[in-house]
Design a binder for these strands. Structure first.
Lengths: 342, 342
DNA sequence: CTGAAAGCGCTTACAG
DNA sequence: CTGAAAGCGCTTACAG
């Protein structure tokens, strides 16, 4: 069995290629200080025997593992799994592995938990999607422990090498513009909780379009909800009961859009005939529900890839050209939930 | 910063408690061969200093990491994330960490990939949900590499210590019984692909209930689809076009049930008035779509916990009492998609 | 550009 | 029940 046949080590490679293990180590670690001929000779032996350095031994010597953590509190399974795939797309073939660390920001001990986790496992780096990425105190603790990080966020909170930015306001603007183009003038927005930066950004993009189309802002048409199905349904019910109800609703995420569907259903209001709806996220439900939901999509998998690449790339203090910010724009997916106003 | 204050090691604990490091090691590893007084003394020092053994160093010495892998090809994000939570529920507080290994069973190299992953990282154990759990060849390779495993499956494929069993047939029976009790006699079943064991089990439970209620089996009412939305919609369309169409459809999973919704919608057939539908899985969509889908729910999170517990428990060859199989039964969630036949 | 020695923080036979 | 020594497979100053 495989475990009984002794694993090949750096010593074997050193002996076989007639150099010291230190030189093999240098080759493995891409040290510039090794003669080209020597490097080639060692590489040949390494490849011939399919040698890969033992991650545990390296971790012990380097005092840092090859573990990348995804620290998240995002409640959407779709988001989590898609980002995970993106991260793994780039970790594949490297010696890095992905460990999952779901957290609950409402817990008092969560920062301590993460810190202990990062220290004990000597995590190489952490990737944080929203809303964990917005917790400056946590980031400071993690960085203080010598662990790298990359934050995915809708606003710039960090240096370029630690940031993947998403243009949420642009996505919201696309949604609002689509509605305005269809002729809607009374457009409501059910926004997410104020504690999430994304909800501000999406509101901001929405408002910009109103200005763009000369639509007067009616503050009664902007309601806050909790990014959940139930709160979305609640706010929608309120909107639909107004004496002068909106002809279109843009919600801060798909979950709330589904709540709008539910409220409309109960009120006997047809989508899109009587009411247009646009969501945000493009969750799987969007293309399953009837009528199919028009929504805004962020390239989650690509964002995961970008985050992983930033995290594991060489970080030379002597970088000459400053790194630009990596950013992603959402795209509007027009389906069947939008139509001209009645 | 934390990383600069030297981490406390086994040597510190040994010195502080006046014993050798070997004895500390014994205490850490729950060796029986240490005097009670000595153990207490050492434990006190350990707790006082919040010492935890370095996972990397242990891994190197033991030639095995404290990494648990979840190897999966299940396409449902909900399933994956929920099981992940269950696994983490029991890993929390231990030194084990969870690494994710999504695979594609259709790839030729996937078994080799997993094997290399398991060997290189010296994975402690792997948890495999369906359908990966049904791949005997993969399991043999993983076991041959000295890596433990626990399979989650709808049929018994392994010993009790390696198995978490689900009673899929029972869940299907509950669904069919619910329909029969409502008065349905022409009940169709859209089953999943033959290559999945679960699809056989669910079909089996379905058939048992027909016998139980003296309903003659009409083979034209049992169709195979691909566990997907589109194939479900396709089969449903065929069923609804029959001269004597079914009054109820039980599908092998929720995705296909949503396909049925879609087909019914297009055919102008109302759910549940004209057609009752029951799914399987209780995905988030089930309680978002209108009418809310009646479906069968497996306790995924509990299953994940059970799998993790089996995996990390002591495995004494000298076990006296044989371990019983750990198994889980699904429960029917009755919502709004079922009613008496028209 | 290359090597001998020491060290990372644990565990494992082997003695006693 | 307890300890001294060697080893797991790497990397890191330090020399040369």
């Amino acid at each position: 069995m495989s475990r009984s046949k002794r694993k090949i080590t750096i010593n074997d490679i050193a002996r076989l290629s007639g150099v010291s293990k230190k030189t093999v180590s240098r080759v493995i670690n891409d040290s510039p200080k090794v003669r080209e001929r020597t490097r080639e000779k060692v590489m040949a032996v390494i490849e011939e025997h399919g040698y890969t350095p033992d991650p545990q031994a390296r971790a012990l010597a380097l005092r840092r593992s090859s573990l990348i953590a995804m620290v998240y509190d995002n409640p959407s399974p779709q988001y989590v799994v898609t980002m995970l795939r993106g991260i793994l797309d780039v970790l594949e073939g490297t010696s890095f592995q992905l460990v999952m660390k779901p957290v609950d920001r409402r817990s008092d001990s969560y920062r301590q938990d993460v810190l202990r986790f990062v220290e004990q496992q000597r995590i190489f780096g952490a990737i944080m999607p929203p809303s964990v990425s917005e917790d400056q105190e946590l980031i400071d603790m993690v960085a203080g422990a010598g662990c790298r990080h990359v934050r995915i966020a809708s606003v710039v909170l960090d240096t370029p090498e630690n940031t993947v930015k998403t243009h949420d306001s642009d996505g919201a603007a696309q949604a609002a513009r689509h509605l305005a183009e269809l002729g809607h003038r009374r457009i409501a927005h059910i926004r997410g909780p104020k504690m999430f930066r994304s909800s501000h950004e999406r509101l901001r993009g929405f408002k910009e379009v109103l200005v763009e189309y000369g639509i007067k802002l009616d503050s009664k048409l902007i309601l806050e909800a909790g990014y959940t199905f139930d709160t979305g349904a609640q706010r929608a019910t309120e909107l639909l009961r107004m004496k002068n109800p909106p002809t279109a609703i843009f919600t801060g995420n798909d979950e709330m859009a589904l709540g709008v569907y539910n409220a409309a259903q109960k009120a006997g209001i047809r989508i899109p005939d009587d009411l247009s709806v646009v969501g945000f996220d493009d969750t799987p439900i969007a293309s399953r529900i009837w009528p199919n939901l028009s929504t805004v999509r962020l390239p989650i998998r690509e964002m995961g890839k970008a985050a992983a690449e930033l995290l594991i790339r060489d970080r030379q203090p002597a970088r000459s050209s400053p790194l630009p910010y990596v950013s992603f724009s959402p795209s509007l997916v027009v389906r069947k939930s939008t139509a001209p106003p009645p």
